[in-house]
Design a protein around this nucleic acid. Structure first.
Lengths: 206, 206
DNA sequence: TACTCATAAGAAACAGTGTTTCTGTGTTTT
DNA sequence: AAAACACAGAAACACTGTTTCTTATGAGTA
C-alpha cells in the first residue's frame, strides 16, 4: 500500500472539495434553475466564503463547466439505459426518445448545456469532447447503419449532427416558450423522429 | 383635419419616446450583444434617469419584448426580400436560406428572440403572434404545397414547425459553440435543408 | 394673477450579482 | 524560534434590476 505524500493528500482533498462544491451547485441548478446558481448561494450552502470557490474554479464559468461535464454524464447515462436492439431503426428511435427524456428529466441541465443559460460559458475542447462521448451511442448506431448500407451517407458525424440539431431545435423552441404545450412539442418531436429515420434509413418498411 | 386632444398628443409623445428608447436599446444589442442591454446603459444613451424607462416599460422584459417584436420585423423583412418563385421547392429552399441569413446578419437579435439570451423574457401572446407573422411566407408556401399535393401532410403549421426547429437547431448549436466552425455549420445547414425538402416534397426531381 | 396640487423625473438607495483586495491566521520551512 | 508562505474570511468594488424619496414643473382652480 503506497502512502500518499502530503501534496497528494492535499490534492485529493481539494479534489474532494471541488466535487462537493459541484454537487452543491448541482442541487441549486436542479431544484431552482440556472438563475439560482450564484457563487454566493453555493458558498452559503457550503458555509464558506466565496473566495474558496474562486480559488478552486478561477471564474464562475469554471464551475459551470464542471456542471456541464456532470450533465454529459447524466446524458450518457440516459442513453446507456436504452437497451441495445437488433433492429437499428428501433434502436435509433429509442435513442431519440432517450434524448427527449433527458431534456424532460433534467430541463435545467439541458438549459445549462445546450440552452445557453450561462452566457459566460462557452464549451471548450474538454466539454465538446464530453458531449461527443455522451452522444457516443448515437454515433455508433449511425456508423453501423452506414456500414450495413442502411444509410446512404459517408460521414457519420454529419448525420449525427443533423439529427441532433433537429431534436435539439424542437426541445429548445419548447423550453424557450415558442411551442404552446408539452404535448404539442412531444407530438412534433415524434413526428420529426419518424421523418428523420425515414429520410436517412431506406429501410424495407417504407 | 381632426385636432388632437391634449391626452392624444401626450400619448403620441410617450409613444415616440418609447420608440426612441427601443432604438437606443437596439443599437446596444446589435453593436455589443445582449449582455450590453442594461437599463442603465440605455438610460445613459438617452441621457435620462432609469426611472423613465421603468415608467414606460414597467419591467426590463417589457423593453426586451419590444426588441423581440423589432426582431420579428427584421426577420419578416429578410423573408420578404426573397423573390417569389414558381418552383415551390426552390422557393422553400430560398426561404430557408433567408432564415440562415437573418441569423448571420443579426446574431444578437437571434439570440434575443430564439436563443434565450434574456431568461427573464418569455414570449407571450403578442410575441408569439409576431413570430407567426414573420414566418408567414413559410406557412404560405407549405400550405400551397399541401394544397397542390406536393406535400403529403395535413397540418401546414406542423410542417412549418418541424422544419423551423431543424433549422433553428443547427443555428443555435452553432451560436452556442457546439459546432466548430461557421463553414461546418453552414454545410450541415444546407444538407439539412436538402434532406427536409426531400422528405416533405415528393417532387419529380428525386 | 396667485395658489394649490398632481404628475413625472432625477438622485439615491436597496438587494442582488461576479470578482478582487486586504488582512489575519495558521502552517511550512529554514 | 524565526521567517516565509499559503489560504480563507470579511469587506469592498463595480456592476445589475428595481424602488423610494424628493423635488421641480406645469396644469387646474380660486
Amino acid at each position: 500500500m503506497n502512502l500518499k505524500t502530503y501534496q497528494e493528500t492535499k490534492l485529493q482533498h481539494t479534489e474532494n472539495l471541488k466535487q462537493t462544491i459541484v454537487e452543491a451547485a448541482a442541487m441549486l441548478l436542479q431544484e431552482q434553475g440556472p438563475d439560482a446558481v450564484t457563487i454566493r448561494r453555493v458558498a452559503e450552502k457550503m458555509e464558506c466564503s466565496t473566495k474558496i470557490i474562486y480559488n478552486l474554479f478561477n471564474k464562475k464559468d469554471g464551475l459551470i463547466k464542471l456542471l456541464y461535464l456532470e450533465g454529459c454524464k447524466l446524458l450518457a447515462k440516459s442513453f446507456q439505459s436504452v437497451k441495445r436492439q437488433e433492429n437499428m431503426e428501433d434502436y435509433l428511435r429509442a435513442l431519440c426518445e432517450a434524448y427527449w427524456e433527458f431534456s424532460y428529466n433534467y430541463p435545467n441541465y439541458y438549459q445549462l448545456m445546450f440552452g445557453g443559460a450561462f452566457s459566460e460559458f462557452k464549451p471548450e475542447e474538454e466539454s465538446i469532447y464530453a458531449t461527443t462521448t455522451a452522444l457516443q451511442q448515437f454515433t455508433q448506431v449511425i456508423t453501423e447503419a452506414i456500414e450495413a448500407g442502411l444509410i446512404a451517407e459517408k460521414d457519420p458525424q454529419e448525420v449525427v449532427c443533423v439529427i441532433w440539431a433537429s431534436l435539439h431545435g424542437l426541445i429548445h423552441l419548447y423550453l424557450g416558450g415558442h411551442i404552446e404545450s408539452l404535448e404539442t412539442a412531444k407530438a412534433l418531436y415524434n413526428k420529426s423522429v419518424t421523418k428523420l429515420i425515414r429520410t436517412y434509413m431506406q429501410s424495407s418498411t417504407w
